[in-house]
Amino acid sequence: MPNLSRRNLLRGAIGGGVLGAVGLATVPQMVHAANGLPLTVVNNTGTYSSDQIFVHVVGTHLSTGKMGHIKADGNFAEIASSDNGSDGYASYGIRLSEMKTLPLATLSGRVYISMGQQLKFRVVGTGSGIGLQYPAGWVSSDPSYGILHDFMEFTNNDSGMYCNTTMVDMFGLPMYVTLKGATTQSIAQYEDGARSKIFAAMSKQSGFEKLVMDDLRIMAPGHGLEQGLFSSSYFDGNVNARWSQYSSATMNLTANNQKYTGKIEGSNFVFRQNGTVKATFAKPSTSDVLFCNGALAAPNDGVGGPIAAVLAAGLNRGVLLKTTQPVTDPSQYYAGERVNHYSRIIHENTKDGKAYGFAFDDVCEQASYIQDNAPTSVTLTLQAF
Rank of each mutant, 00 (worst) to 15 (best):
T286G: 09
Q205W: 05
R217T: 02
S206C: 05
A295Y: 01
S248W: 03
S86P: 03
H347R: 04
T376H: 09
L107N: 07
A282K: 15
G23C: 12
A33K: 10
F385A: 07
Q325G: 06
T254I: 11
D192W: 01
V123S: 08
I198F: 00
T126G: 06
M99V: 12
S248P: 14
T106S: 10
H347T: 00
Y342D: 10
D87Q: 11
A90C: 08
A335H: 11
V168A: 10
R317Q: 03
Q371Y: 06
K322D: 12
Y190H: 15
T261V: 15
T101P: 02
F385V: 06
S368D: 15
G336S: 11
E191Y: 03
E191G: 01
A33F: 04
L107R: 01
L10R: 08
R272W: 04
Q245K: 09
F199P: 12
N43G: 14
H61L: 15
T45L: 07
T47A: 14
R272I: 08
T381W: 11
A200D: 15
V339R: 08
F269S: 01
L225E: 15
S247L: 02
T101N: 14
T64Y: 00
S206Y: 04
S108G: 14
D150Q: 13
N75K: 14
Y342P: 05
G137Q: 10
L321R: 03
N293E: 03
L10V: 12
G88I: 05
A384L: 06
N252S: 15
N257W: 00
Q118T: 12
T324C: 01
S5D: 15
V327F: 02
M213N: 13
R11S: 13
E337K: 15
L37E: 02
A335E: 08
I198H: 01
G12W: 08
N35G: 13
D214L: 10
V310P: 11
R122V: 00
H61M: 12
T379E: 15
N373S: 13
L315F: 11
K66Y: 02
I218A: 07
F271P: 11
T261A: 10
A295P: 05
A25D: 09
Y342S: 10
L382M: 15
L179M: 13
K263I: 13
P28E: 06
I130T: 01
Q325F: 02
R217G: 04
F385P: 00
H32V: 14
N156G: 05
E348K: 09
M99D: 05
G46A: 09
L4C: 08
H56T: 05
L24W: 04
N238V: 12
W243F: 13
T376M: 05
Y356W: 03
V277A: 11
G127D: 03
V327T: 07
D73G: 00
N274A: 12
G357I: 01
P28I: 06
G88R: 07
Y190W: 09
H32C: 14
S128P: 14
S128C: 00
K354M: 11
T324W: 00
T60M: 14
T178Y: 02
S128G: 01
L9W: 13
K278Y: 05
T323Q: 13
Q205L: 05
